[in-house]
Nucleic acid binder design. Structure first.
Lengths: 263, 263
DNA sequence: CTCAATTTGTTCGTATGTATG
DNA sequence: ACATACATACGAACAAATTGA
């Protein structure tokens, strides 16, 4: 392959990490089938225009991650078991949200009985009279996957303190009789782990995270729950099913056959 | 503040970048109100246990990003206009997907008339007889926000070549008469920019990205479109509205009043 | 007005890690 | 392995702007 992939050291990320990222992407995109031999170090060295040692640093990293197997005299091979990560599958339904929590174990971090009020956007309802702030780390199979900052209306918390201490708050809230949830909005943006987050989630500093914000309104339009959840970015998989598009959803009614305008 | 936030250099991310990430998170989480003065360099220096110069590097970065204003003799202040980024708002509806594309300009990169078949999962329909591979970069206001790799069934492409060259393919496909879309599935995971991606999207290597995969099936269950879109991670905002949860969606029927079990 | 305290801005020398050939 | 180049990080000192006594 005469391919040249330009890599520049602009003052931030070390070269060998960039090359590792590039190769990891190729592996995960399925460029090579599992078990097969990938390019030789010499090929990679000339593709990326870096020194042999730098390529090796990248390969060593991926070998430690279990993505590759390097064998002297033979070559570098894609691991067999590649392909199925254990994703946290998120879909825009209550069901999927609760499924995630079902497997989760919450390790309680702290409780603040008089926290500052959560800030609410214009479309996020009225604040409750008082809140409790619960902080916890959610884990699956002993591996932490999310950090939860949860503002819970005090009058809701008071209904069943023990449940809120022992089970994921969202699950408790949904099942709670007498608290009618009228609407919930979840927004999700992508961020990066600061040092504290990285430590709690067992990821590298600056690694991608998914930051979810939940606002749950009761029938009176009061925000009974305002939560910020920071997930490990490498575990989140969002699955969105779209039904057949209806005419209403099209930008403008299509003009049957006349639409092949010159252009 | 006697707070100490531990930051370690383990051989990957420079300290000043980690500190910048931490402060950026604090700013975006609203720890300080817009316009107010943040901690002095000396305070940050002792919180993070680093040298003065290192803190300054982080502050300079955030100042260039427009989040902070540093003023000699006075202090460092949060920018006034903080808070509203121009998000690409994604919701699980056709409407929102098409809205994004409406503002977008596609700059065409390449076309491959005989690409390898896209790989389809077990639940992703039957492959079409042949595909065309279109590659493009989507921009908004001159700023690129996404890279598109689009496998399009050849018989669909043939219906209106010029439209597919000039407009976002997804929009063309949805509006196309005679191609009845039965189902579309979008999955979204978080990744990182390799060198090539970083260059095309004007972001740093290793910066977070959102990687969307679209599979669109026609009535016969044929995958007429298989697309991989890599978005800039810092522009994506997912908005999910959940209606009032119904009884069906709860893990198990709640037991009216008996549920305050000791625990 | 002057002075001192506070706070950001700048520079020097040195040490260490990364990458090259 | 070695010599070279550059980025990162430290500590310390000094300069310049701002504030209030």
């Amino acid at each position: 392959m005469g391919l040249v992939t330009k890599i520049a050291r602009l003052g931030s990320v070390p070269l060998y990490l960039q090359i590792a990222t590039t190769l990891r992407r190729r592996l995960e995109a399925g460029r090579w089938v599992a078990g097969s031999k990938i390019s030789t170090i010499e090929e990679l060295q000339s593709e990326f225009k870096v020194a042999r040692v730098t390529v090796r640093q990248a390969l060593e990293l991926l070998e430690r991650e279990g993505l590759l197997r390097c064998q002297q005299g033979k070559g570098t091979f894609v691991s067999e078991n590649l392909g199925e990560r254990r994703w946290l599958k998120v879909a825009p339904t209550w069901r999927s949200q609760l499924d995630i929590l079902k497997e989760a174990a919450a390790s309680f971090v702290s409780r603040d009985m008089a926290p500052p009020r959560p800030r609410l956007g214009p479309d996020e309802g009225k604040p409750a009279a008082a809140y409790v702030l619960l902080r916890s780390v959610e884990s699956r199979d002993g591996e932490p996957f999310g950090i939860v900052h949860l503002h819970l209306a005090k009058h809701v918390y008071a209904r069943d303190r023990s449940a809120f201490r022992n089970r994921p708050a969202l699950a408790v809230l949904v099942e709670m009789p007498g608290v009618a949830i009228a609407r919930a909005r979840q927004t999700l943006v992508i961020g990066r782990a600061d040092a504290e987050t990285a430590r709690l989630l067992h990821i590298a500093p600056d690694a991608p995270t998914a930051e979810a914000r939940w606002v749950i309104l009761d029938k009176a339009g009061v925000a009974v729950c305002v939560a910020a959840i920071t997930y490990r970015g490498d575990l989140i998989k969002l699955e969105i099913d779209l039904p057949a598009p209806s005419g209403r959803e099209l930008p403008r009614p299509r003009q049957a056959s006349r639409r092949s305008r010159a252009q």
